[in-house]
Structures are given as C-alpha cells and as structure tokens.
Design a protein around this nucleic acid. Structure first.
Lengths: 337, 337
DNA sequence: GTGAAAGCGCTAACAC
DNA sequence: GTGTTAGCGCTTTCAC
C-alpha cells in the first residue's frame, strides 16, 4: 500500500541498500545517486516507515511520559518543556496519566516498555523503591524521575528544594506573628509533598513552636480533596490564623473553601501557597507563593534524558532547582501587587 | 536481549505459531498448550514487542494528538479526556504542540504518519483545506478535528456552538445597556475564534447597533498577545464600557491589563469571557462566562476516532455541543456568586 | 488445534 | 561508494 525503500531503489536504478542509506541518512552515498534517489522518493511519495526502522535498528525515537494528571498545570507545563526539548532531537512523546495510582503507573510503564520507548520520564506516585522502576534501571532503560526522588533508585531526578521552599513560607508566616498555622497537603507518600510537610515542621521547630497536629490536614491529591480538607480545618473550634497549602490543587481547594465560608484573606486567615500560576495574581489579595521553575524542571529532565539516551553512563544525578518566595498580599504583609 | 515468542515456544515445547497465538490473544489454542505457554512466558519474563507486532500486523494502537499548546488548560483537559477514552481500548497517545503554526502542524502530522499512528486528533490551526489533512483523508487514515472545522474536509469534527455562545454573551452585555463593547480575540483564521467573532457581530446586528471597528482587537494567540491587545483597547480615547474575550488566554491577558490600568470590573468596564476555568470564580468579581463542555468534547473526539478506527465508514459527522452561559459578577448584573 | 514458512519495511554487516 | 544478504520479532496464510 505504501511506497517502500525497495520501490524507490528500483525506480532510481540502485540497490535497496543504497536507497536506504540515502533515505535513512546514514552511510555513504554519492551525490549523484543521492539526487536520483531523492527525486524518485519525492515523486513516488515515499514516506519513511518509523515502525520498520525501529524494529530493525532497535531505536524508536520515542519517549514515554507518565504524569499524575496532565490537567494539572504543573504537569502540563512540564510536558510542554519536555516536548520542546526532545522534539528538536527527533523524539516524540507518549503521554499517560497515572492519577497517583501505583497500579496504573505500573501498567503504563509496562505498556511503554512494550512499545520499546528509548527512555522514560516519570512522576513516581510513591517514594519507595518499586519493581517497575528498578527493573527499568537494571534493564538500563534511561529513566528520569520528575519532581520526586525514589529512595534507593539509581536514576536521575530533577526536582526543587521543597523543604527549603516550604520552610521559607512558614517562617514568613511565623515572623508575621502567626502561632497557629494550618497545613493542607496531599499524602506524604508523594515525596515532594512529604518534603514540604517536613519544611513546615522544620520551620516550627526552629522557631520553638510546637506543631498542633490538629492543624495538619493530609488529604487526597485532587482539588476537591483540598477543598474538603481546608473546610474541615477551617471549621474547627479554634481555626488556624494562617494556612500553608502544599501545591496548586490544594491552593485552589482552600481558596474555594475560604470563599464558601465567607472568610476573608488575610483578615480572617492569612495564606501562602506552593506553586505559582498566572491567576494567583488576579485574585484579591494576590496570593503569596513559593514559585517553582516548572519550565526549567521540564527542560532539565529533557536534557538529562537525552544525555542518557546518548549513552551517558555517569552516576545518577540529582538536580535540585531553587524555589522563589514571592510576597504578594495574602498574608496582609504588604499592599504591593 | 529480550525473550521472544520463539524462545517461549521452545521452552513450552510448541511451535512459534502456537505460542504467538496464545501470547497475542488471537486464533485457536488448546487450554493445555495455553497454560504451558503462559507459564513459560511468565517465568521467562516475556514482554510483548509492540513494534514488531505493529510492523507485522500494520496496527500500532497508537493515536496522534496535535494541539496548539498543552499548557492551555482547554487542550490539557481535552487531552486527558481523549486519553481516558482511548486507553481503555489499548491505545496510547502521541502528543505534540503546534503553537497554531501551520508549518509545525504539517511536520507533526507527517511525523505521526511516519510512525504509522492508527488515527489522529488534530486542532487545525487554519480553517481552510490544507494538503496535510486532506491527504490523511484520502489515505483513509482516521482523523477527527478537534474544536475547529476545516472547510471542505471530509472528516469528523467535534466542537461547540461558538457563534451562538458568543452571541448570547454579547446580547447579555447589550441588554445591560452597553453600547460600546470591545472584543479581544485571536485571529479569525482560527475558526472557533472566527465563529465567536461572528457571534459578536450577529448580536450587534440583531440589536441594530453598528460595530465600532476600533473596538475590535484581533491579536495573537498567547496570553501576552491578549494583554497587549486589551491594553491598547483600553487606552483608546473613548474606551469600551464592556469587553468580550474570545477564549481563556485572552481573558487572562485582559484581566491583567485591566488590573495594570487600575480599571475596576464591572464599575469601569464590564466583562464576559469565553471558557470557564476554576479560578474564574475566585477573582472578585467572579467572571461571567460562556462555558464549554471541554471534557465532553474530548470524549466525543475519542469515541468518534475509535469508531473510525474500528472501520466505521459512514459520512463524516459534525458533533456540535452546546455552551452554557454562566452569569456571575463581572457585568455588575448580580451579586450572586 | 497446530506447525511451517513467508513476509512486514527497514538496518547493518560484510564483501566487492 | 554500492550491492548482497541476513535478520529485527511478530502475524498470517495455508496445509495438515
């Protein structure tokens, strides 16, 4: 049904090997035959067959990306950055969503392996070493962990300084005089969240203020979970005077809860969120946040993966990018926008 | 390096064909040999080779998705819905971003064809018939157009009633007494935007109010473009009393411009946006919007593509989903949230 | 129900 | 530089 290298070779009057070399862009071909072949290919409408090439060469030029949910802007941005980085090298991305579910994640990684991806970028849903990822490593299939490390796994990981970022945020709140700071986070098994929770605790510890465990809400990963968690926290007899949310989903949920309870920020409750999105400056007051260099994380993941796919066998790298604390108005500390 | 069907067959003491039938899930295999084969496969760590299978069977179980930009929540949601719909049938998605650039779009479609995708979902950057898409149709490669039709192209398309949605929005503004309604949109070549612009004009026409062309700002597709466009519009000597923005990117840009010019909504300028996102209810006042059933669009695109890939040869369908007009506070018409 | 054998379209030695 | 020849790992007739 399609024009093959063989057909082109015949038309151009050369052997299949020569045509393949010209069309595949490898090996030596004289300018003369190259022209002949290329002309024939063009006029016959030859189209390379990436599947056949992959089977023969054992290289698919395909990379698998497993994120929790592409609808989360954090991951969408990451996907975009990754795609941009890899596309220029001829790679295409296979996308899948795990929903923070280990079983799904395993199935997706397996499906990608069956498709013989040249490498994988995954956002691991749990921080402990699991077979589906360590198998990848032992099979020497390039893998870079995105946003979250996995204990004991010898793979590159690119992430931000979660603990430090969270600590800075909570210290800010503490410095403003808040003694009862609530935390709304998804599960600590998600290691980025675990680190942020640790940062929250570390700030308290250094300030010599004990953490009131009733103010620590650990919930699911969706915005709806964040909403429920925040509501529950805010309806306590003694509600916190400030809230720190561990990621953008929790922030939206919390903001929604705050609004539904008719609680004013920062008068009734101060707030700082992890993750910055465009709309955070559109609300009143604009949200004070810990910003992550999301594009950079994605780009680094891409270049790391490229290096590995190009044969880099150096020890696994941990690339930790700094966060940026951006003070806006949600702690009442300033009127600046 | 990997365990092949042949290896498994040998170990199980059957022919390669039988092992392949059992492992591939097709053809007849006796329960006895099936058990033998499956046990051998498991213990040897057999993993199906999707590439080889694709080459032999001419089916990749892969679908290409070309969106403008996965960072745009509209497309991220669509991608998610599409992925969910196709994944259950064993398909995996290849993702690519066109940035509304026709050249890029062409290259991406070509790359996907080289990879022998079983079908494509594309968000066409231009509404006129272009070879890269009509070639797909003549090659009978399943194609569904997402969000935007292409004139004269015999392909399924799933979209919303853009004109009607925009018309309703502008009528609302008109009914509130606005006579000078600004429009901030991306290029009319993007047919969804073109239709929204048409709706804007239709509302004016029906109301017998001429459109002041100086209030019509057609700009690029990014949020930064929206910002510039809105700013330019609002700095006119006689600025509009209301603004209709044609999509979420334009809305964010416009909101940012409004804020920077210290213009209050709705006191100074009323506003209605096309596209609803969670944060639109978080701003003060909450944004009055035309909501699109984004998930549904994605799901329909998925089921349509599945039908085509399963051999449906019926005439192309145009699935047009209704929009929903949601009145909140940005036109000052109500205090409800 | 099972097996033998011929490809799918390309790459990769290797010889010329 | 070019051609010959094996595969890559699977599916798919077609006999048996």
């Amino acid at each position: 049904m399609g024009v093959t290298v063989k057909d082109v070779a015949q038309a151009a009057g050369v052997s299949q090997a020569t045509a393949a070399r010209a069309l595949g862009g490898y090996g030596y071909v004289s300018p003369t035959s190259r022209r002949l072949i290329e002309d024939a290919a063009r006029s016959m409408g030859y189209r390379r067959h990436a599947v056949a090439r992959a089977l023969a060469s054992n290289v698919t030029h395909t990379v698998g990306l497993v994120v929790s949910d592409i609808e989360n802007p954090f991951f969408a941005t990451a996907a975009r950055a990754l795609s941009d980085t890899l596309e220029s090298e001829g790679y295409t991305i296979l996308l899948a969503n795990s929903d923070e579910d280990l079983d799904r994640e395993e199935r997706l990684v397996e499906a990608f392996r069956a498709r013989r991806v040249d490498g994988l970028v995954v956002v691991p849903s749990v921080a402990t070493k699991t077979p589906h990822l360590s198998d990848l490593v032992s099979a020497e299939i390039p893998l870079v962990l995105f946003d979250r490390p996995v204990r004991g796994l010898k793979a590159d990981v690119v992430l931000v300084d979660n603990k430090e970022g969270a600590k800075t945020a909570v210290e800010h709140l503490l410095r403003l005089g808040h003694q009862r700071i609530g935390l709304v986070s998804d599960p600590p098994e998600i290691s980025s969240s675990g680190e942020r929770i640790a940062g929250y605790r570390a700030a308290h510890e250094e300030a010599g203020i004990p953490v009131d465990e009733r103010l620590v809400v650990l919930t699911g990963s969706t915005q709806a979970d964040g909403y429920r968690g925040a509501k529950q926290l805010l309806e306590r007899a003694k509600r916190p005077s400030a809230i720190f949310t561990a990621n953008n989903m929790m922030s939206v949920g919390t903001l929604l809860a705050l609004r539904d309870l008719a609680l004013h920020v920062p008068r009734d409750v101060a707030m700082v969120g992890f993750d910055d999105l465009e709309w955070t400056t559109l609300i009143e007051p604009a949200l004070t946040v810990v910003r992550q260099p999301v594009h950079d994380i994605g780009r680094h993941a891409g270049t790391r993966l490229l290096a590995r796919m190009n044969g880099d066998r150096s020890p696994p790298r941990r690339i930790r990018l700094p966060t940026e604390f951006i003070v806006r108005g949600s702690c009442g500390e300033t009127e600046k926008r």
